[in-house]
Design a protein around this nucleic acid. Structure first.
Lengths: 214, 214
DNA sequence: GTTTGATTTAAACATATGCTTGAATGTCGA
DNA sequence: TCGACATTCAAGCATATGTTTAAATCAAAC
C-alpha cells in the first residue's frame, strides 16, 4: 500500500503540509487540501476523523521528533555532571530543525515555514498529547541556562528564552523573505549560516548584563 | 454625532480591534464584529466598503502614527550630524508602541496584541498606502545602525534587524503569556520593564562579533 | 466465485460567510 | 412642513465551509 503510488492518507498529509506552510492553518480549507491531493473530500474525515485532527497530526509529525532531539542533545551535554555553556544550549534548542528537515521529504524552505506556522499559530491551544513534551523541554532548557550563566535569574532566563523563541519563529517563517525583500543585499539564505547568525544574536542577548552600556 | 453615544463607525472600529487582537484577522467574521458592536451587518459595508477595507483601516490606524514617531525620534537623534548609538536607535524603533498606546483608548494588553497581529498577519500583503512609510523606516534604521556599530556589515544589519523584529512581534503578541504560563515566576508584565528587557537583549545581539565566544 | 471488510465516490446536508437590496427611519436646512 | 440626503434595518443572495450518507468499488480470504 505504500510503494508504487502513495496512499491517500499520505497524499493528504503532504498536500496539507504544503498548503499550511504557504498560507497558514486558518487559511486552508478541506477543499483546498483534497483538490491538491487529488482525493475525495470525504477522505479527510475517513482517515483523520476531522479537519481539526488532521491539523493536530500535522503539528505532531515533526515537532515531537524535534523535541525528542532537543532533549537527547541536552542530556548528552549535561551527562556526568558537566555544565553546558549558553551557546551549546542554544544550539541544542535550534539545531533539531536542521536535522529533522533532512529526515523529511520536504524542501528546507517549505519545512521551515511549516514549523514557523506550528510554533506561532497556536490558536485554540496545542494538541493535548504535545503539551507534556513541550513542558519538559521548557523546564530542561530553563535550568540548563540558569546553570550556564551566573548573571541570569529565573525571571530573566524566561524572558530571554521568550525572545529567543521570537527570533526563531520569525526566522523559520520569514527567513526567505530577507533575501527577496532586500533585492539580494542579504546573500543566499543558506540554512546553516542563518542558524549561526541566530545563535550569535541570542547568545549575546543571554550573556549581557541588565542595562549594560555599549 | 460623536459626544453622547459613539457613532456606528467607531463602534465597528473598536469591536474589530478587540476581536482581532484576541483571535487574529483570519478568525474574525463580519457577524462577530457587528454583533459585538451592536450594529447591523450592512453597516460595515456602508461605512468601510468591505471587510478587507475595514481591516486595512485597522492596520493603518496605529501603525502609521508609530512609523511617524519612529522617524521623528531618529531624525532628532541624528540631527546636526550626530551619530546615535545602537541603544538609542533600538529605543527609537520600539518606544513608539508605548507612546501611541497612551493616545489610544485601548488597554495596553489589547493594544499590544493588536499591534502584534498587524506586524505578523501580513497575509495577502500590507495596505498599499503603508508600504512607502514602512520602506522609509527600514532604510532609515538600517543606515543609522550601520553608522552606529562599526562591526556591522549591511547584510549583518539586515539579519539582526530581522531578529529584532521577531523579538518585538513575539513580545507584543505573547508578552502576557509569560506571566500566566510560568505560574507567576515571571513578575508582573509591566510594559516599560518588558521594553527594557527587549532593548537589552537586542542591543547585545547587535553589538556582538560574528562567532564570538562567551 | 463468493463473501467480507476496507476504501473511495458523488451527492447532499446544515450552517457560515461576505455582500447587496429596498424599504424604513432619522437628520437638518429651506 | 416639506424635501433631500444620510443612515439603519430586516431580509435575502450566492457561495464556501466542514461533515455525513449510502451506494459503488476494491482487495484479499475462504
Amino acid at each position: 500500500m505504500s510503494k508504487v503510488s502513495k496512499s491517500t492518507k499520505s497524499r493528504i498529509l503532504e498536500a496539507t503540509e504544503c498548503l499550511v506552510a504557504e498560507h497558514g492553518f486558518e487559511a486552508v480549507s478541506l477543499r483546498d487540501i483534497t483538490s491538491n491531493a487529488a482525493v475525495n473530500v470525504a477522505a479527510v474525515n475517513y482517515h483523520f476523523g476531522s479537519k481539526e485532527k488532521l491539523f493536530e497530526a500535522i503539528q505532531c509529525r515533526y515537532i515531537e521528533p524535534i523535541n525528542e532531539e532537543r532533549l537527547r542533545i541536552i542530556a548528552e551535554l549535561t551527562a556526568e555532571g558537566r555544565v553546558a555553556n549558553v551557546r551549546e544550549i542554544l544550539e541544542a534548542f535550534m539545531r533539531p530543525f536542521l536535522t529533522v528537515v533532512k529526515r523529511s521529504e520536504m524542501s528546507e524552505k517549505l519545512f521551515f515555514k511549516l514549523m514557523g506556522r506550528c510554533v506561532i499559530d497556536h490558536q485554540g491551544g496545542l494538541p493535548e498529547d504535545m503539551i507534556p513534551g513541550i513542558k519538559k523541554v521548557a523546564e530542561t532548557f530553563t535550568s540548563a541556562l540558569l546553570a550556564a550563566a551566573p548573571n541570569l535569574t529565573t525571571e530573566l532566563t524566561l524572558w530571554r528564552l521568550h525572545f529567543t523563541f521570537g527570533v526563531m519563529a520569525q526566522t523559520l517563517l520569514h527567513g526567505d523573505l530577507l533575501h527577496s525583500l532586500t533585492d539580494g543585499a542579504c546573500g543566499d539564505p543558506d540554512a546553516e549560516a542563518q542558524f549561526q547568525e541566530m545563535i550569535d544574536f541570542c547568545q549575546a542577548g543571554f550573556l549581557t548584563q541588565k542595562g549594560a552600556k555599549e
